[in-house]
């Protein structure tokens, strides 16, 4: 048999993001107070930080070149803004501090727009909003669950969506659902499924996957950006998606560009460029190229 490659887990990343949130806030608050804002500029030159370790968003390919959905997006947005952009890589931990200390002017690194982060930085509008899904085994009865709607925006439900959500929660009644600890998936499961389903919280994403495979879990909640490529691979041939795609609510309000709070003008500039890129389909095209499906934020 062929050796199977280990894919870096999207969710493993998320746990790190969530865990450090609480602690980060303290440290960042100080640095915000201590550092002087960068010189006000007309933003003809922008220094942008990314992580470079989070495929397919931003990562180094085999030849050591920085590539990814966001790297292409940066090129496009900078063109629209008539700005000369320099991309630097920065470790995820401390990435917000670096921004507030003036090491760079913006972060484009698959950063979800969340309330705690909004206390430390300003965000542009979202450019991507990757949906979240239930993954089940094909031989599980839940695999046959059909939803009336295809997409649920949790904090903004129409009556039809509310019905679909109720039907969904009803279908998962009494089922065992796995999530990784300290992720948006756990947050969602606790908020929506805690009452009628059994939620199992795991330390590592690879354990959740294995438990689903061995049939101890009826379903897991995960990010579509991670799961779509898996489902299309040999590794995912036993699995399928059950129910609608979900965004909003505990899943956050999309992914945006982070800038210093004092640089609202720069955030607005990015927002305008993103709007344009969403309108003419550039972002959709890039998303399909890098994620195999459309992750565009709603316009």
């Amino acid at each position: 048999m062929d050796p199977v490659k280990i894919t870096p887990y999207r969710n493993a990343k998320l746990i790190k993001q969530m865990r450090k949130l609480s602690v980060l806030s303290m440290a960042v608050l100080i640095s915000v107070l201590l550092t002087a804002p960068a010189v006000a500029a007309d933003w003809k030159q922008i220094k942008i930080a990314t992580e470079g370790a989070y495929p397919p968003w931003n990562y180094f390919d085999k030849s050591g070149k920085l590539v990814g959905f966001e790297i292409e997006l940066i090129k496009d947005l900078c063109g629209r803004m008539n700005a000369e952009c320099e991309v630097v890589t920065q470790k995820w931990r401390g990435i917000i501090e670096g921004l507030n200390k003036g090491k760079y002017d913006a972060i484009i690194a698959a950063m979800s727009i969340t309330e705690p982060r909004k206390e430390k930085v300003a965000f542009s509008r979202s450019y991507a909003d990757t949906p979240n899904i239930f993954v089940v085994r094909k031989d599980n009865p839940l695999a046959n669950f059909k939803s009336e709607v295809e997409h649920l925006t949790l904090d903004d439900l129409s009556p039809a969506e509310q019905d679909a959500l109720d039907a969904l929660l009803n279908a998962f009644r009494g089922k065992v659902i796995g999530v990784q600890v300290a992720t948006i998936f756990q947050k969602f499961a606790d908020a929506y499924l805690g009452e009628h389903s059994e939620i199992r919280i795991y330390d590592f994403q690879h354990t959740v996957d294995l438990e689903l495979y061995q049939g101890r879990l009826d379903a897991l909640v995960g990010g579509m950006a991670y799961w779509m490529p898996v489902l299309k691979s040999e590794q995912g041939k036993e699995y399928t998606i059950a129910g609608p795609r979900m965004t909003g609510g505990p899943f956050g309000s999309g992914i945006g560009v982070a800038v210093r709070k004092t640089d609202q003008a720069l955030a607005d500039k990015f927002s305008k460029a993103i709007d344009a890129a969403l309108r003419d389909g550039t972002i959709k095209k890039l998303a399909i190229e890098w994620f195999t499906f459309d992750t565009s934020a709603p316009q």
Binding site: V23, M26, A27
Partner: peptide, 18 residues
Amino acid sequence: GQILVNNIGEKLGWDYID
């Protein structure tokens, strides 16, 4: 320890410690 170290660090004005 993560929380403890950073609570102390906050008082002493250190950077975020991992």
